[in-house]
């Protein structure tokens, strides 16, 4: 899957009905009609890097730390492109390691959103930690997991 640099014309890819900050930003069912969609700001400085897969979604590396060679990864997938989510997350990890030459890519996964379990594993991510009541979701605090891929070199 080809990732390319963000252009102003890609703005509408940056918002959708996924849980904000999530590693696997998949559109969630029964999003309250009056609830704001999650939105991600366009890239504007060195603290984050964002690339786009046209028609599918975006991959975003936030809290990029060049000393520790790590970044927190978020992806956002369009409703029509959910079946490309696996390609997008794998492309995101590969881009982080190969082009940004990061050593570690990690992110939040919220089990209460029922993400497909194999998606992260297939992209080389492993669960490292669980933090109870770490995010408010659908009326209550729910646990959040930290998944990560570490480059073997």
């Amino acid at each position: 899957m080809m990732l390319r640099g963000y252009r102003a014309g890609d703005l509408e890819l940056l918002s959708g009905t996924w849980l904000s900050g999530e590693l696997l930003g998949l559109p969630l069912p029964n999003w309250p009609v009056l609830a704001e969609p999650a939105t991600v700001g366009p890239p504007s400085d060195e603290t984050s890097e964002l690339c786009v897969a046209p028609g599918t979604g975006f991959v975003r590396y936030c809290d990029v730390d060049w000393v520790h060679r790590r970044a927190r990864l978020e992806i956002g997938v369009r409703r029509e492109a959910v079946d490309s989510a696996e390609l997008l997350i794998s492309a995101a990890v590969a881009y982080g390691f190969r082009t940004l030459s990061l050593r570690r890519v990690y992110g939040w996964v919220t089990p209460a959103t029922h993400p497909p379990p194999y998606l992260c594993e297939r992209a080389g991510l492993q669960r490292e930690a669980t933090i109870p009541s770490a995010v408010w979701f659908d009326g209550r605090p729910v646990p959040r997991e930290i998944w990560a891929a570490v480059r073997r070199d």
Partner: peptide, 9 residues
């Protein structure tokens, strides 16, 4: 509740 592998340099 977990360990972040190689999180710091």
């Amino acid at each position: 509740t977990g360990t972040l592998r190689g999180h710091r340099y």
